[in-house]
């Protein structure tokens, strides 16, 4: 559990980060909280000859809650999300989900940016951000660009971010309606056996819109547009729930691991989604 030797950098600004990335190419990686990258390096599954710590780069720890949009800096920790009163009102699902990530010690170090940028299918934030239709802001040698969360994930640890780009912020429209983040895990600190992020808008007793994303049930987070669509217009009766679950199951592709075989994961995914939808509806 000892990593190979690496050079450690702690630049003071983003320009310094970008020049290091340019100099070392894919031999360099940026690190935010380090909770995914450091274990991979210790297991020698990731070899990072040049490690760039973002801690001293300013401007990425802010949370701005506007009327219509929310902006969260990449270096905001999960603990900071949990503690932010205005955010808890504007987007309570962020707090509900953050409280289900790992344990308090990890949440004091783990960041939003690291969680979404790493591309680990076990992480909770990517699915959550897809549910909320968030946009990731990245900066690179060509300047800044925005990538929708729903287009960001290509495969496990493979994302639309280029090697010389750094994810600096997440923006999202202020969520509307009822929310729920439902997660089954074996123990504290574990990745999800199955998790569902749900945001539902109710109008005149019927579902006006529904957004659903699933975690750790494919090699990427799964935004299930069809599952959400199956609920729209319904009163969330049994038939609508069944249709949503069926649509979701069509979109996920879980694989067997120590948490259980595929049949179990699919079954639990359905149960978890049902519970999440029901809870979100009760809050809508």
């Amino acid at each position: 559990m000892i990593p190979a030797a690496f050079e450690y950098y702690r630049p003071k600004d983003m320009a310094g980060v970008l020049s290091l990335l340019e100099e070392h190419g894919d031999d360099a990686r940026v690190m935010a909280g380090g909770h995914s990258l450091i274990p991979m390096m210790k297991l020698r599954m990731a070899e990072v000859p040049h490690l760039i710590d973002l801690q001293d780069v300013g401007g990425m720890t802010g949370i701005e809650v506007g009327t219509d949009t929310i902006r969260i800096g990449a270096m905001v920790t999960q603990a900071a999300i949990i503690d932010h009163a205005a955010l808890a009102v504007a987007a309570p699902i962020l707090r509900e989900a953050s409280l289900q990530i790992a344990d308090p010690q990890v949440r004091y170090m783990g960041t939003v940016g690291g969680n979404v940028a790493n591309g680990d299918p076990g992480n909770d934030m990517p699915g959550l951000m897809q549910c909320l239709d968030a946009t990731f802001v990245v900066v690179g040698p060509e300047g800044e660009r925005s990538i929708p969360a729903r287009d960001f994930y290509e495969a496990a640890y493979m994302t639309a971010r280029e090697d010389d780009e750094v994810l600096t912020a997440v923006t999202l429209p202020t969520p509307k309606g009822g929310h729920a983040y439902e997660k089954q895990k074996r123990k504290i600190g574990d990745y999800a056996t199955a998790a569902a992020a749900v945001q539902i808008v109710k109008e005149a007793g019927a579902c006006a819109s529904a957004s659903i994303a699933m975690t750790n049930l494919s090699d990427t987070p799964v935004f299930s547009e069809a599952a959400g669509a199956a609920l729209v217009g319904s009163t969330l009766d049994e038939a609508a729930l069944n249709a949503a679950v069926a649509a979701m199951l069509n979109d996920i592709d879980p694989s067997e691991d120590n948490r259980g075989p595929v049949a179990f994961k699919k079954h639990v995914a359905g149960v978890i989604l049902r519970r999440a939808v029901t809870r979100a509806w009760s809050r809508a």
């Binding site: 089954q184 074996r186 056996t193 948490r259 259980g260 075989p261 179990f264 079954h267 639990v268």
Partner: peptide
């Protein structure tokens, strides 16, 4: 008796 084995019993 982890989750999936309990589930398997029920199943």
């Amino acid at each position: 008796h982890d989750h999936w084995r309990i589930w398997k019993t029920a199943n």
